[in-house]
């Protein structure tokens, strides 16, 4: 059975998001590399970072990359702190541009941040006005009752078929609403908190996160929430029918397998149905 699963605004927004996240994450790591340390509070006390990436020279004259989290050092040579013969936070394959170039990283970041925000706001409006939000995304009481079962199904890679596959399951609903209405606005607001001009106009904003440096740290953590989401998302997309999933996000049409049988009898549904 074919169902029209994703409307065109959702599909367009989805692929724009992929582009934006790709650029924003990598240019963000480029910007982070200009001062590869994070702090809590309003200021950066160099002797008390929450996280830092440094290159050190050992007694034998060897260079090592050391990442320190809450005072616990880890040897991350080759990836964090020191890679490809250079002292740098994240390695060049993870940053945009590849070489250390803060001014260019900021250009990419602040340009795609605008597209990301406008795209996100348009999706919010669309989801609220088209009822996509209430109908498909918000977990209902009935979903939440089966959260244990769905979690177990995810962990064992048993995914719903037939009628059940027509709707997002509770894990999907929580992941999508969490990203779109939680982590998304969080990363935008913490980003804006780092702007001295914005802080002058809205001084409560950085205070909300405990200060500008806390906001920078939360921005970084939210970035890795996106990375984590993307990894799980890709695994799920690949293991629940890669071609079917990709096609539905490109053309809108999604094939649902009937429980127990093949889907030779294709029932086309009204796209608006």
């Amino acid at each position: 059975m074919h169902v029209y699963r994703h409307t065109w605004p959702v599909r367009l927004g989805h692929w724009l998001n992929l582009l934006c996240l790709f650029v924003l994450i990598m240019s963000g790591l480029q910007i982070f590399n200009a001062h590869p340390a994070l702090y809590w509070g309003d200021r950066s006390d160099r002797d008390r970072p929450f996280l830092s990436m440094r290159a050190v020279i050992t007694e034998s004259g060897e260079r090592r990359g050391i990442t320190t989290v809450w005072g616990h050092p880890f040897d991350t040579t080759g990836v964090l702190g020191y890679s490809s013969g250079m002292r740098r936070g994240f390695p060049s394959w993870a940053t945009l541009p590849g070489p250390q170039w803060l001014a260019m990283g900021r250009r990419w970041h602040l340009f795609f941040a605008w597209i990301f925000v406008v795209n996100g706001l348009l999706f919010w409006l669309y989801a609220l006005f088209s009822r996509h939000f209430w109908k498909d995304l918000v977990p209902k009481w009935n979903d939440l009752r089966h959260i244990g079962r769905d979690l177990w199904r995810h962990l064992t890679f048993h995914h719903p078929t037939g009628e059940e596959a027509r709707h997002y399951n509770v894990m999907q609903k929580m992941a999508y609403t969490g990203i779109v209405f939680g982590i998304g606005p969080l990363i935008v607001l913490t980003g804006l908190s780092m702007s001295p001009a914005f802080d002058a106009a809205f001084p409560w904003l950085p205070d909300l996160f405990g200060g500008r440096q806390s906001a920078r740290t939360v921005h970084f953590l939210a970035c890795f929430a996106f990375v984590g989401f993307a990894v799980v998302h890709l695994v799920m997309v690949a293991t629940t029918g890669l071609v079917n999933n990709l096609r539905s996000m490109v053309t809108g049409w999604f094939v649902i397998e009937q429980g127990g049988g093949t889907d030779d009898a294709q029932v086309f549904q009204d796209p608006n149905g």
Partner: peptide
């Protein structure tokens, strides 16, 4: 006041 460097750190 808080001094915000383009590199990302702040000092007061």
């Amino acid at each position: 006041t808080r001094h915000d460097c383009v590199e990302g750190w702040s000092a007061i």
